[in-house]
Amino acid sequence: MALTNELIQEKLTEKFGVQLTEWEVPYGLLTFRAPADMNLKVLQHLYDDMGFQFMTDLTGVHYPDRKGEELSVVYHLHNLSENIRLRMKIYVPVEKPDVYTASKLFSTANWMERETYDFFGFNFIGHPNLIRILNVDEMDYFPMRKEYQMEDPTRIDKDDEMFGR
C-alpha cells in the first residue's frame, strides 16, 4: 500500500500518540512537531519502520518572539522507494538549545548539524565533531540569529521603515 500523508500521520499517531502535534500539510508536504527530547526516537522509527532513510535537509530557524521555544530545528526526510517527503520540527529554548544529534543515523547530518550549530548555536548532544564549519573559528556569536542585523546598526542613513524588513 502506497504511503500517503494521511497514512503516515495515522501510523505515527498510533506509535507516538498525542506527543506529535501541529499536523499540517502546507503545499502538500506533511509537517508535524515533535517534542525536542524525542527527536531521535521519531527519526529512528521513521528510518527503521517507515522507510524514511534519506535526509534531504536539516536546518535551523530562529523565532525571537516565541518565548521558551525560540530556536527550531527542521528536518526534511524522504522515503525514496515510496517517493514521499515529510517535515519534522522541534523547538528548543535559546538559553539551552540542546538537541540530540542525528548523525549516528544519517551520516549526512554530520555537516548539516555543524552548519546549523555554526549559524544558530544549537548544542547537538553526541555529535562527533561539533565545531564551526563555514565561519571562522574565532567567531563568538551565532550570526543567523535575528538579533544580528545585516546592516551596521549604528548607521542612521538607512531607515528600516523605508529599506529592509
Binding site: 532513510q53 534519506f54 535526509m55 534531504t56 525514496l80 544519517f106 551520516s107 549526512t108
Partner: peptide, 9 residues
C-alpha cells in the same frame, strides 16, 4: 556504495 551514498545524502 549505494547504501553509503544514500546515507550521506
Amino acid at each position: 556504495s549505494a547504501e553509503r551514498a544514500i546515507n550521506y545524502g
